[in-house]
Amino acid sequence: MSAPRDAVLAVVVALAVVFQAVVFRFISIDGVVPNLALIVVVVAAIARGPEFGMITGFCAGLLTDLAPPADHLAGRWALALVLVGFLVGRVRQDARSSPLMAVAVVGAASFIGTSVFALSGVVLGDGALPIGSMLQVIVISVLWDLMLAPFAVPALLRLFDEARPGRLVR
């Protein structure tokens, strides 16, 4: 992988983390915002497979864990997004078959990612809510991500495809 391409992807991931904390707070529903970092990881995994998805997931998750407003144990979002990257990478052929499938995969990934994060909180006793409120948060966040997916997925997919290493020039 070449350095400039990595830099572009790193900037995309950093912007996703910053935007979901700064810009999306104006449109949050009960504090739940679209999970842009998760969508970036999903698209990375669809574009280039589970390994790249896991690397992106680990980096994006770690950044979410460490970026300023975060106060939970570091590594929890990284774990959730690594799993998302792996699982989405496994179904990437299906996800590429139609735009509708890609949106559905985002929804499923959002549910899995947020649930893994919530469960890790329950296991570690770190900022866990009652199960009812957790489910409510997970449902709202899945709906948010489903709403954002039709716009974000094609744009990001094009970006990742163009930045693909070893891609033949047209």
Binding site: A21, N35, L129
Partner: peptide, 15 residues
């Protein structure tokens, strides 16, 4: 207040 931690993180923090 310039940033708000997402509710998905289940902690209520702001920057």
């Amino acid at each position: 207040v310039i940033a708000v931690g997402p509710m998905q993180s289940f902690s209520r923090t702001v920057t």
